[in-house]
């Protein structure tokens, strides 16, 4: 019980300590308004080009992708921000279990991403005056939760890269653009060249976006378990890889002395 409590306390405190967007004005601007404006742009565009066909699915997919991007940036801050503040070395030298720690730090960002995506989706539905089947809602939340978890896993890996390079913003933006491009949030995946589709299979959110479209547009729930399972496994793999990276960084710092964790 102690451990569970500690897990969530750490999650909350790190979120506040490292993310710093808790200032309501900034939070709304960065976490809500900015993705909403992107959502609006893509929704209007897609609505125009496809003459409204499959709109609700595209809005859902965009809400998922665009609102999650901030979570991905947020999760990168778990490492980069800690290092920037000079606390990373203290954290690494403490006896706490590192995998548990980084997982607990990630949880807040997963929930945050879920929250903003839902807001984004509601906003999109209101603007375009559409509604969805009530039985889809719970399923959608589940799908999104897993997809965001998986995206956060990749975000954590990218955060580790930032221990090697100072250009966190650059890498973060490349990641964000790639997710937007590869997930197929704004077009059927079939349009993409085959090799890109194969590549997209290893990217988080691809399956989440596909499921979102299937659920919202076709009312097709049949692939949920298969695809969601894959997405979850993908997320777990990302987290494991990121832990290995953290371990490797620690090794470089301790033994080789080629990396400064401060």
């Amino acid at each position: 019980m102690q451990a569970v409590q500690r897990f969530f306390r750490q999650s909350l405190l790190s979120y506040r300590a490292l993310f710093g967007w808790l200032d309501p004005k900034v939070y709304i601007l960065v976490m809500v308004l900015s993705p909403l404006s992107q959502l609006l742009f893509f929704s209007v565009l897609v609505n125009y080009v496809y003459s409204g066909e499959g709109l609700v699915g595209y809005i859902g997919a965009n809400a998922l992708i665009l609102c999650v991007l901030n979570s991905v940036f947020g999760i990168m801050s778990i490492i980069t921000s800690d290092r920037y503040m000079g606390t990373f070395q203290h954290v690494m030298a403490s006896p706490v279990n590192k995998a548990g720690l980084f997982l607990s730090r990630s949880i807040a960002h997963v929930l945050n991403g879920l929250f903003t995506s839902i807001i984004g989706f509601i906003f999109g539905m209101m603007i375009f005056q559409i509604s969805i089947a009530p039985d889809a809602i719970l399923l959608l939340v589940g799908v999104w939760m897993v997809s965001i978890f998986s995206a956060c896993g990749l975000g954590l890996i990218i955060g580790c890269f930032c221990l090697w390079t100072p250009s966190m913003n650059l890498i973060g933006n490349i990641l964000a653009s790639s997710l937007l491009l590869l997930s197929g949030a704004n077009y059927p995946q079939s349009i993409m060249p085959v090799w890109l589709v194969h590549f997209a299979d290893f990217i988080p959110l691809t399956r989440g976006v596909e499921l979102t479209k299937q659920i919202l547009n076709e009312g097709n729930y049949s692939n949920v378990f298969a695809l969601l399972g894959e997405e979850f496994v993908l997320g777990v793999c990302f987290f494991i890889i990121s832990f290995l990276f953290i371990k490797y960084a620690e090794y470089l710092s301790r033994v080789r002395g080629t990396m400064d964790l401060d």
């Binding site: 913003n169 650059l170 933006n173 490349i174 653009s177 790639s178 704004n186 077009y187 993409m192």
Partner: peptide, 18 residues
Amino acid sequence: QFIIWASPLFLATIAIFI
């Protein structure tokens, strides 16, 4: 560098797919 070299390519690709 991202704004000049990379970002336009991403956006162009998304647009051409759409």
